[in-house]
């Protein structure tokens, strides 16, 4: 059966990834032929034991890792673009407007305030500074980062606060596709609830989510489908 492609957010097919470690003269097979098609408004959870390649798959979908073979079609402004064959500048464009990635750790220039960190990707999309700062403020508050912290650099924050700034940054730009790499791992229970609520909201607005969720309960609350990674055949 042919899927309704207009509503397809992301379709990856036969993704293989092998790392070649030259100094160890070793080849490590991380992914062997993963495929999935995801529609807008759906959430795909990538599941499996530690070291199985969950983050590797997610990073491939962001263009952070180069796949060894396969294709990754992304619905970018209504057109399906193959991330594997896209130019560097096309990938940057897709990241600016279509795919947002929330990593496990926030990595930013020191001394830049939390507010500016969240606002930067919104400004990059082309929105004016005032709108961007207002939306950044709104999302930081949603994630329980109090106003008095907004002007401070996250380097001075606790691990959980930093991760909430990271989530705010990923969400506030309102990208149609959201990649989440254990976004709640360092959050306490109430803040985890808040974050999950925001992901559910995003999904209800039509955002497609591919995520790794450490916590089974969290995973079940947001995921429509689960992709269980198997150890690659040698």
């Amino acid at each position: 059966m042919e899927a309704n492609t207009e509503n397809t957010a992301i379709a990856f097919k036969d993704i293989c990834k092998t790392f070649t470690l030259h100094n160890l003269k070793a080849q490590i097979k991380a992914l062997s032929g993963e495929s999935y098609t995801l529609s807008f408004g759906q959430c795909l959870a990538i599941n499996g034991p530690s070291g199985i390649g969950k983050s590797t798959l997610l990073r491939c979908l962001y263009g952070n890792y180069l796949v060894s073979s396969g294709e990754i079609k992304i619905n970018h402004r209504g057109k399906m673009v193959d991330l594997v064959r896209a130019s560097q500048r096309e990938i940057l464009e897709i990241r600016t407007h279509t795919i947002s990635y929330v990593s496990q750790f926030l990595r930013v220039i020191p001394r830049v305030s939390a507010l500016d960190i969240v606002a930067a990707p919104i400004i990059e999309k082309g929105l004016d500074k005032e709108t961007a700062l207002e939306r950044a403020r709104e999302y930081l508050l949603k994630l329980n980062i109090q106003e008095r912290l907004h002007k401070l650099p996250p380097m001075t924050f606790s691990g959980g606060e930093r991760q909430r700034v990271n989530i705010a940054r990923g969400l506030a730009r309102l990208s149609p596709i959201l990649l989440l790499d254990e976004p709640c791992a360092s959050l306490d229970f109430p803040n985890r609830q808040v974050a999950m609520e925001l992901f559910l909201n995003a999904k209800a607005q039509g955002v497609a989510i591919v995520g790794i969720f450490h916590d089974a309960e969290a995973r079940e609350s947001v995921a429509d489908v689960t992709c269980n990674l198997q150890a690659p055949k040698a």
Binding site: R59, G63, N64, Y65, L66, I91
Partner: peptide, 13 residues
């Protein structure tokens, strides 16, 4: 390549 890609997944020895 893209900076994050080259630094996270370098190909050349």
């Amino acid at each position: 390549g893209l900076t994050d890609q080259v630094l996270d997944d370098p190909i050349e020895p």
